[in-house]
Amino acid sequence: MLAVLALLAACALPRVGPNKREIFAGSVQREGDAFVVSVNDRVTRATAVTPALGFSRSFVSAGLLTSDAIRPGDVLGLTIWENVDDGLLANQGTNATVLDEVQVDSAGYIFVPYAGRLRASGRTPDELRETITQRLQDQTPDPQVQVRRVAGDGSTVSLAGSVGAPGVYPIERPTRTLSAMLSRAGGLTIRPGVAQVTVNRGDQRGKIWYQDLYDNPSLDIALRSGDRILVEEDTRAFTALGATSQQARVPFETQQLSALEAIAQVGGLISTSSDPTGVFIFRNEPAEIANQVLGRDDLQGAQRMVYVLNLTEPNGMFVARDFVVRDDDTLYVTEAPYAQWTKTISLIAGSITPVASVQSLAGG
Rank of each mutant, 00 (worst) to 15 (best):
D105T: 14
W209D: 00
E172V: 06
A185Y: 02
T235K: 12
A120V: 11
T198L: 14
V147N: 15
A195M: 10
V36C: 05
Q340E: 08
V98Y: 15
E253Y: 00
S271V: 02
R191Y: 02
A185H: 06
Q359I: 15
S357A: 09
R176Y: 00
A290Y: 05
V308R: 10
L118V: 06
S155C: 14
A336T: 09
R42A: 05
G54P: 09
N91S: 10
R283L: 05
S245L: 06
I281W: 05
L257M: 04
L88N: 00
V75N: 04
A248E: 11
N284A: 06
I270M: 08
A107F: 15
A237Q: 09
I270L: 08
D327L: 04
D212Q: 15
A90S: 14
V319E: 02
P113T: 03
S67A: 15
R321W: 02
T235N: 13
V231H: 05
Y109K: 15
R149H: 13
I190F: 01
F252V: 05
L136C: 01
L88F: 10
Y307G: 03
Q246F: 00
E288G: 07
G267P: 03
R296M: 14
I190C: 07
A243D: 08
A339H: 03
A320S: 06
L78T: 14
S258C: 03
D100S: 15
G268D: 02
D138F: 09
T131S: 06
G363K: 11
D298L: 14
G152K: 14
R21I: 04
R135D: 09
N19D: 10
G122W: 14
G301C: 14
P174M: 04
V147E: 13
L65K: 10
I348V: 10
T175Q: 06
G350E: 05
I270A: 03
S273L: 04
G364M: 13
E82D: 07
Y332A: 02
A287S: 07
V28L: 07
V145M: 11
F55N: 06
L65G: 10
N40S: 09
F318S: 01
F24E: 01
F55S: 00
V75S: 08
Y338P: 08
D322M: 04
R296P: 09
V43K: 03
A46Q: 10
P72F: 04
L257W: 02
N40D: 13
D328W: 03
W341L: 11
D41I: 01
G152L: 12
T97S: 14
L89C: 05
G116N: 09
V358N: 13
N310K: 13
N83K: 11
S56A: 04
S258I: 01
V37R: 09
D126L: 15
P125N: 11
